[in-house]
Amino acid sequence: MDPTQTKQGYQDYVDKKSPNSPIAKNLFNAFWTGGLICSIGQIILNICKERGFDITTSGTIVSIILIGLSAFLTGLNIFNKIGKFCGAGSLIPITGFANSIVSPAMEYKSEGYVMGVGAKMFTVARTCFSFWYFKCYYCWNYIFNF
């Protein structure tokens, strides 16, 4: 049977023919590396709390330290190797967010610091910001509860 007779038939045939990602291995790696990054965050958070910062400030410090670490590793050309191994384990924690800003900044350096780095830094991450106004929905909720 010719698999290219209908578009749907061909799509199904291709899906069957394409190898799957090694999902068990990927899930395992994502789990322990993601857990590890969060645990490092927890330890930093605990240290901040011990030093007398309030919980909000401590949380911000944790974010800044993890972002700095991720930017440092991206700059050393190591983060893409980590990301390949960890998958979502490094993408979903704040490290992935930092990487998604630092990597285009480095890539578009060749187009200059204004139109390259400045304009394209948020190529990957900018969607996060536009979407946060989803939350408007519960702001209104809140206001109506007055």
Partner: peptide
Amino acid sequence: CFIVGGAICVIGQILIDK
């Protein structure tokens, strides 16, 4: 923290692979 953080990343990995 490890279990919950890991579990959230696993959800992300399922989205990537599936």
